[in-house]
């Protein structure tokens, strides 16, 4: 068990290390002055340039240069954005909650909708119910996210006028920034019109969450359906029925547990797909998250911001994936043979 945890942690540290190395190398590969790409401050004088040289230890060989960069990165000094001259790390911290919030709600919706439907389809294998659910999920799976978002905007915002199409909340509400999660911030704030603000924020959430979650829901349905079908065709389920257990007993005691367990990591992995899709959705819905910020940075060739954004997003994805894997291992330890896939 300890070995398994150790291996995962090792993997995490090594991957993060490689990511840092990659982002460091980017500063050399981007066009323009390496120092400027690293720090985000175009040196105005030779003196300033010399100071930056010292700060990033560029003249002392690549190893100590990278070591210095690693230390700076860990201490939160990611340079400043070329465009706005604000610290990249602060910008990311400020924007990340918005992206996480959006992905989180979409994930919850996907699971709430996808789980029951997937199980239903799995249980009614090869019936019209199954085919119906499967084809709907296939359609949902095939929609490009950006197209779906535009379609939703077209119908619900522009044609029907039911829902707003941009931002997290109407700018008329002035919600102080605490956690960056808009719903929590509203609840914590002391604005007079809390109910109206909450309602407004929820209305802003509907369309982006929906466009994000449809694709993931479809994926979740398909994953679960497949797993349920496999489990129900296995011998121990037949054995359970032979023992005389009722449908619900078989379902809860044997079916569900064995169907969900193996796909837990895969389900959690959908969150990273969500985070990637969230970037596209953010741009379309003008959602002030890290995706929109990163796309702007790319447009403006803001290299320190691109580097920082890439590092942050990939670090989150890696950390999340490995932690989920770890948690599943801890909660449901498998025996050594299974762990090494020696079936």
């Amino acid at each position: 068990m300890l070995i398994a945890i150790g291996r995962r942690l090792n993997l995490l540290i090594i991957t993060l290390f490689i990511l840092c190395l990659g982002s460091y190398v980017l500063a050399f590969l981007f066009p323009g002055d390496t120092l400027t790409n690293l720090s985000g401050t175009p040196p105005l004088s030779a003196d300033q340039s010399h100071q930056l040289q010292l700060m990033y230890a560029l003249s002392e060989g690549w190893f100590s240069g990278f070591w210095t960069y690693l230390k700076l990165t860990l201490s939160g000094d990611w340079g400043v954005s070329l465009n706005s001259q604000t610290p990249v790390f602060d910008d990311i911290l400020y924007l990340l909650p918005a992206s996480l919030e959006l992905s989180l709600y979409a994930m919850v919706i996907s699971l709430l909708v996808g789980l029951p439907l997937g199980v239903l389809a799995g249980l009614k294998h090869r019936t019209y119910t199954d085919l119906g659910i499967l084809s709907v999920s296939l359609a949902g799976f095939s929609f490009p996210v950006f197209w779906l978002s535009l379609l939703l905007i077209l119908i619900f915002a522009l044609q029907l006028g039911y829902l707003p199409m941009s931002g997290r909340i109407s700018l008329l509400y002035d919600i102080p920034y605490h956690t960056g999660f808009i719903l929590i911030d509203i609840l914590q704030s002391d604005v007079a019109v809390k109910d109206a603000a909450l309602k407004d924020a929820l209305r802003h959430l509907v369309l982006p969450t929906l466009s994000l979650s449809i694709v993931t829901t479809a994926l979740v349905i398909r994953l679960i359906r497949r797993s349920v079908v496999t489990v129900y065709s296995s011998d121990f389920i037949k054995a359970a029925y032979t023992k005389g257990l009722s449908h619900s007993q078989v379902f809860w005691r044997h079916g569900m547990k064995n169907a969900l367990l193996p796909i837990m990591p895969q389900l959690a992995m959908q969150f990273t797909v969500l985070l990637t899709n969230a970037m596209i959705v953010e741009v379309i819905f003008s959602w002030p998250g890290i995706g929109e910020w990163l796309i702007q940075a790319i447009y403006q060739r803001d290299y320190p911001a691109i580097r920082g954004g890439m590092l942050a997003v990939s670090a989150i994805v890696v950390t999340f994936t490995i932690s989920v894997d770890l948690i599943v291992r801890i909660l449901y330890p498998l025996n050594k043979r299974q762990f090494y896939a020696q079936a």
Binding site: L154, L158, Q159, L160, G161, S170, L172, V193, A196, D200
Partner: peptide, 18 residues
């Protein structure tokens, strides 16, 4: 394109913005 299509539709904006 979507705006061009929208041109002729009835607006039903229900706003609860203060």
């Amino acid at each position: 394109l979507s705006l061009a299509i929208v041109g002729g539709c009835q607006p039903q904006v229900e706003s609860n913005i203060p």
